[in-house]
Computed example of a mutant assay.
Amino acid sequence: MAKKPLPCPTVLRQLLDYNPETGVLTWKHRPTWVYKPKKVSPQTRANRWNATWSGKPALNLVRSGYKGGSIFSVTVEAQRVAWAIYYGEWPSDRHIDHINGDPTDNRICNLRLATRSQNNQNVRSAKGSSSRYKGVAWDKSRGKWTAGIKHNYKRHNLGRFDCEEEAARAHDAAALRIYGEYAKLNFPPAPL
């Protein structure tokens, strides 16, 4: 079965309001052209839909931490819809990265295009990790902290350290060198 195409940004703008300052998507009053004639007239179906959904927040189902939902039976992520409405085009095959790491914060200032590698860099330390820092783990056999970073699908060892914080700083230096602005740092610089 062929995958259904995504609605074009022009259609999205007819169906949804997007507030770029809050990141909230809201359903607009639905026109009758959306509905095909069936037993119940398109006007009646539009009236029913509008009475229930018009003006209400849209695409708020959270799956795997991201907001999303469906439009015309096509599953979509809210950040991609926000991008398409704001910029007038779908973000092609690139990922949308949430700069602050919060996948539910869809303000346009918090969204940026990223490669898969850049997007994967902007994640927190795994739950249940032996360290509170990203890229750091305890090596029981040697009694030291190890630092590492993944790049181009390979893990690179950055060394062993007596101090957990030293290992975290080694990770941060490598992350800045490799990922630049996309790096998720353990010790972010203080804002100016």
Rank of each mutant, 00 (worst) to 15 (best):
L6S: 05
T10Q: 08
L12Q: 05
R13L: 04
L15N: 06
Y18P: 14
N19E: 14
N19F: 00
P20F: 11
E21H: 10
T22H: 05
T22M: 03
G23T: 07
L25F: 04
H29R: 09
T32Q: 13
W33F: 11
W33C: 02
V34S: 00
Y35V: 04
K39D: 08
K39R: 15
V40N: 12
T44W: 02
R45Q: 15
R45W: 00
R45K: 14
N47T: 13
N47W: 06
R48V: 13
A51W: 03
T52Y: 00
T52V: 12
W53E: 06
S54D: 08
S54M: 01
S54C: 09
G55W: 07
A58H: 04
L59D: 00
N60E: 10
L61E: 04
G65M: 07
S70C: 08
S70P: 12
V74N: 00
V81N: 03
W83Y: 13
I85H: 01
W90G: 05
D93P: 10
R94T: 09
H95E: 12
I96W: 03
I99G: 00
G101N: 03
G101I: 05
D102H: 01
T104A: 02
D105M: 08
N106W: 06
I108Y: 03
C109K: 12
C109N: 13
L111Q: 08
L113F: 05
L113Y: 09
T115M: 02
S117G: 09
S117W: 01
Q118E: 15
Q118R: 07
N120K: 09
Q121R: 02
Q121E: 13
V123Y: 00
V123T: 15
R124Q: 06
A126L: 14
K127S: 12
S129C: 10
S129H: 11
R132V: 13
Y133D: 03
K134I: 04
G135I: 03
G135A: 03
V136Q: 04
A137W: 07
A137E: 12
D139F: 12
D139R: 15
K140C: 01
W145E: 08
I149Y: 07
I149M: 05
K150V: 11
H151P: 08
Y153F: 03
K154N: 01
N157P: 10
N157E: 04
L158E: 11
C163E: 14
C163L: 07
E164F: 09
E164V: 14
E165L: 01
E165V: 13
E166K: 13
E166V: 13
A168N: 02
A170G: 08
H171R: 14
R177K: 15
I178A: 00
Y179V: 14
Y179Q: 07
G180F: 03
Y182S: 07
Y182L: 01
K184A: 05
K184E: 02
P188W: 04
P188N: 01
A190V: 14
L192Y: 07
